[in-house]
Design a protein around this nucleic acid. Structure first.
Lengths: 334, 334
DNA sequence: TCACCTTATGTTACCGATAACGCAAATTCT
DNA sequence: AGAATTTGCGTTATCGGTAACATAAGGTGA
């Protein structure tokens, strides 16, 4: 318990309990037959000495780890915090821990994070989206541990992908808005680095142009759109193109900001302007007008990704592509 | 580069480059004099073999690590995501990584996380708030690494605390609302597990009662209040106590939800009802009415906590208590 | 009673890196 | 030119655990 001096090791406990280090190890891992007497003695000494396992050594010896590396682009968006909840809850049940890295939507940072995290020899790794640097792809392909690419799906993932069909989601929301009769479209979003959002936008644009209509999509932001950016973005968009009658946002948070802009400026929704978001966050559904959006299973993406890793560590196989359903929420903003 | 076979080690690289393992190690860590020729040969082999360092071994040998453990109560609240940003940005500059654990506001989970994370021998640890189980306190006190308790301040932290004076913040906002002339107060929050919120509430209550006024504070939630809970909580509060003229929320997100409730129900702010939040989130300041709140330096709490650890690892000492300023935002909701 | 199986523990050899020290060749100094 | 450094690299021991095998004591069945 003393503050000074070097850290306690198994040897200290072993000597104090008058057994071998191996016996201490066995007691702590509940392996092999141990007499009640020794167990008690060892655990007692662990406690009085304040011994804390060194998993560096353990993991090195067994080449096993209970850590799963997770790389997400951002913590600011509620999307990824919900995904993280799904992951941590699923891992926790199996006494695994998530080690999180934030890439800030930068593929270079992602590459650095992947290298750095793999050097700790995690049991598995979860990365976001499908686009990576060539080197990242290489490293992941040779990592020899389960690799999940989450959020999006593709026929040829590095290992396994868990997510939703972003293009189909884009088409669905576009079709809905078209079917509601809107004809002059705008887009408030940020596609530069967010490849999934870009994919949705492309699908939206394609649907709209296939009807010989067009969509105003100015490049408004240099960072992922949050509430304030959505509010401000809509304002700017309306200055540039005052006649749009429906606006797509790249996410619900931005769309909610847009709704506040309309409320503040007496723009009547959906008569004057219709709004559509993406994600189906609680907040959007609790606004004065329920937001039209696509509901995604964010928590489940995390949960399923984590479970997939755990299952495979337990020897099971899995499909390469796990697609989760989305659902159109018609809402009151369109 | 081959998929099969065991992981590459330094030995593989050493043999391939025709040098000793030590030389490979030196090249990779940029230590000691190495001829350009050897360096090139080694790095080339590292690349072609796809060698990834094993930091378990390295860290074990040096008993040094570039990981900092961070335990936060939740990711759902924007507060902690901003704190996390501050931490990761600060650590990143020094090539350190944060390893995050979520305690879900449970002191028992926190205890388990602390044990688990310390077993990986991080360079330092950051925990949230000041209240921990006795065992957690013991473990942290004996951890022999920098320990930061963040968000709150106390004269006797385990090691160092970085945060704000929650009680003073509570008094400040209470004084402001009193000075605006409100007299029938309500509170929408969740104090059961969030000790910092409870501290603020106690201070608010004390101020109010010192004026011989009272505050209606029903126990409305069993989970930290988010947007929907704030909206719903205000509704319930007003059913129970229709005559309140000012409501404190335990955070801005909930207060924003409350504002939406008022907008939907034609409750005029602040004439009929005044609202006060806590945190000073962007969103609250972008609502139709700027929220009255206390602005806290969340990003800085994270940044300063991380820097404090880095500085002390570099041999510098620091004060035990680092208090960050708060600022009253008078807003338009009071 | 003896071979045989449990049960409970100890011994030895590693896991994959790095610290500390050693030493030859090349360079600089006097 | 010979001594003193410096440069460039190798050897050995060690970090703190665990797998695999060994071993001693006690119980069991024929």
């Amino acid at each position: 318990m003393s503050r000074k001096g070097r850290r306690r090791t198994m040897k200290d406990v072993a000597i104090a309990a008058n057994v071998s280090e191996m016996t201490v190890s066995r007691v702590l891992r509940d392996k092999g037959p141990i007499s009640d007497d020794t167990r008690k003695r060892v655990l007692g000494m662990v406690d009085t000495l304040g011994y804390v396992q060194n998993r560096l050594a353990g993991s090195l010896a067994t080449s096993r780890s209970n850590q799963v590396a997770v790389i997400i682009p951002s913590l600011v968006s509620n999307i990824f915090t919900e995904v993280m909840s799904g992951i941590t809850v699923a891992l926790e049940k199996a006494s695994y821990n998530a080690v999180v890295g934030i890439s800030d939507y930068s593929l270079e940072k992602e590459e650095a994070l992947v290298s750095s995290m793999l050097s700790w020899r995690p049991a598995g790794i979860i990365v976001s989206n499908l686009r990576h640097t060539q080197k990242t792809n290489n490293i992941l392909a040779n990592a020899d541990i389960p690799v999940i690419e989450m959020m999006n799906v593709t026929p040829d993932p590095i290992d396994v992908c868990v997510g939703l069909d972003q293009s189909r989601a884009g088409r669905t929301i576009a079709n809905h808005m078209l079917s509601r009769g809107y004809r002059r479209f705008g887009y408030v979003g940020w596609n530069v680095w967010d490849h999934a959002a870009a994919q949705r936008f492309d699908a939206i644009k394609q649907r709209i142009e296939s009807r010989n209509l067009s969509i105003v999509a100015p490049d408004l932001f240099d960072s992922p759109p949050d509430f304030a950016a959505g509010k401000n973005g809509l304002k700017k968009l309306l200055e540039m193109a005052p006649d749009v009658d429906a606006v797509f946002f790249s996410n619900d948070t931005a769309a909610t900001g847009g709704m506040i802009h309309c409320i503040e400026n007496g723009i009547s929704i959906p008569d004057q302007l219709a709004l559509a978001g993406f994600s189906g966050l609680e907040t959007g559904q609790n606004m004065p007008l329920k937001l039209t959006t696509i509901k995604t299973q964010r928590y489940d993406i995390g949960r399923v990704s984590a479970r997939n890793i755990l299952n495979r560590l337990a020897g099971q196989t899995s499909q390469k592509v796990v697609e989760l359903e989305t659902e159109l929420i018609k809402g009151e903003t369109s």
